[in-house]
Simulated assay, not measured.
Amino acid sequence: MEKYFIGIDHVQVAAPANQEDLARAFYAEKLGFKEITKPANLARKGGVWFQIGQQQLHIGVETNFEPAKKAHPAFAVHNATEVRKNLELQEVEIIYGDELEGADRFYIYDPFGNRIEIIEWL
């Protein structure tokens, strides 16, 4: 089966209902992700989608929402130091975790409590 898989198309994180504007403020305005249009048949369910490089991030509405405690997307960046500084200027809390050899990484949380890893491979 391995020969059929070519990469990750998208990652989805959950959010409470009717929080699309908050998702846009964080993911589009603070992180700079480009919002993309959801297909009409899915748009009525709520949520919002973003393009990041060749992949997408889908923010999906979940009834009885609870953020994941450990599961998280990891976004690869160029110049983690500058990304960190920019986020700090926007008052996004930076959380440091275990060191990872060959990487500069840190964590942030979206407005819904979803953990996000920011990583630069050195």
Rank of each mutant, 00 (worst) to 15 (best):
12 Q>V: 11
35 E>S: 09
54 Q>P: 03
85 K>A: 05
13 V>G: 05
92 V>A: 03
12 Q>I: 07
24 R>Q: 11
86 N>L: 08
77 V>T: 08
75 F>R: 07
107 Y>P: 00
42 L>M: 12
26 F>D: 04
7 G>V: 06
44 R>S: 01
71 A>C: 00
32 G>Y: 14
110 D>W: 05
14 A>E: 14
120 E>L: 02
92 V>T: 03
8 I>E: 08
59 I>E: 03
74 A>G: 14
39 P>V: 02
97 G>V: 02
39 P>A: 02
105 R>Y: 05
34 K>F: 07
48 V>Y: 08
40 A>G: 01
117 E>F: 02
19 Q>R: 09
63 T>E: 14
39 P>S: 02
104 D>I: 05
81 T>D: 15
5 F>V: 08
114 N>G: 03
80 A>Y: 14
94 I>V: 10
117 E>V: 00
104 D>E: 13
52 I>V: 15
15 A>N: 12
35 E>I: 13
87 L>W: 15
74 A>T: 13
60 G>I: 01
89 L>C: 01
57 L>R: 09
95 I>T: 13
11 V>G: 00
101 E>G: 01
45 K>W: 11
33 F>I: 08
86 N>E: 14
62 E>G: 05
56 Q>T: 12
119 I>W: 04
60 G>M: 02
26 F>N: 06
63 T>N: 07
78 H>Q: 12
82 E>G: 09
77 V>M: 10
62 E>K: 14
106 F>K: 04
92 V>F: 10
17 A>Q: 13
73 P>E: 04
58 H>V: 01
118 I>T: 00
97 G>S: 08
81 T>F: 15
89 L>S: 05
20 E>V: 01
86 N>Q: 14
31 L>Y: 14
89 L>D: 00
39 P>D: 00
72 H>G: 02
115 R>A: 01
80 A>M: 10
